[in-house]
Computed example of a mutant assay.
Amino acid sequence: MTTLAGCGFQLRGTSPVPAALQPLAVECPDSLPGRFCQSVREQLSLGGIELKPATEADYLLRLGRYQQDRRASAITAQAAAAEYILRHTVTIELMTTDRVPLIAATDLSASETYRYDETNVLAKQREEEELRQQLGDRLAQQVIFRLAPMTRERIDAAIEAHAASQDAAGSP
C-alpha cells in the first residue's frame, strides 16, 4: 500500500479536501439545483469533512450563480440543429467565518456535446437530461478539487495576507 500512497493514488469517492477546512458550512441557495447541492455535500461528507450550519462552522463555502446553457454547435443542410453543447457554470467562494477570503469568487464550468436526432426526440430529451445530471455531478467534483489546496499553511498565509492588507489600507 505504501507504493500507492506515494503515487497520488486515491480511492474513488474520497475527498481530496484537507481536514484543515473543518468544520465547514455550505451555503447553497434555493436557486441552485438541489441535486448539485446534495452532490457537493455528499462528496464532502464522504471525504470526512464535518458539515455544520454557518453559525457553528469555521469556514463557509458559498455556491451561487448556477447557469445552464444549451447552444447548437452544428447545423444540418436543412438548417436544423444536428449537435448541441450543454454548459453548466457555478460560482464558488470560500471564506472564514470572519469573512477573510480564502478563494475569491471563481466560476467553474463543465460542458458536453451531444448529437441531436429530430426523428428520435424522446430519446434525445432523455439523453440531454442525463447529460445535465452528469454535468452537475462533474461541477460538484470541480468544487471539491478546488478546495484541495487549502492546507493549514495556506489558510494561515491567506489570513495573514488579509490582515496585512487591512493594516496597510488603514495606515496613512
Rank of each mutant, 00 (worst) to 15 (best):
M1E: 10
M1K: 11
T3W: 09
L4M: 11
A5M: 06
G8I: 09
F9E: 05
Q10V: 14
L11R: 14
T14K: 11
P16K: 11
P16G: 13
L21V: 04
L21G: 04
P23G: 04
P23W: 07
A25H: 02
E27V: 15
E27S: 15
L32E: 00
C37L: 05
L44G: 01
S45Q: 15
G47D: 01
E56L: 10
E56M: 11
E56P: 03
A57N: 01
Y59V: 08
R62L: 04
R62E: 03
G64Y: 07
Y66F: 13
Q68I: 12
R71F: 00
A72R: 10
A72W: 12
S73V: 15
T76D: 03
A82M: 01
I85N: 03
I85H: 01
R87K: 14
E93R: 15
E93N: 14
E93H: 14
L94I: 10
M95Y: 09
T97V: 13
V100I: 15
P101H: 05
A105C: 09
D107W: 08
A110I: 07
A110W: 09
A110T: 09
S111T: 13
S111M: 11
T119I: 02
L122Y: 03
A123S: 08
A123V: 00
Q125H: 00
E128C: 12
E130L: 15
L131T: 06
Q133V: 15
Q133A: 13
Q134K: 12
G136M: 06
G136P: 02
D137F: 05
R138A: 04
A140F: 01
A140W: 06
M150E: 03
I155H: 03
D156M: 00
A157E: 06
A158E: 00
I159N: 01
H162W: 10
A163E: 03
Q166I: 04
D167R: 15
D167N: 10
S171K: 13
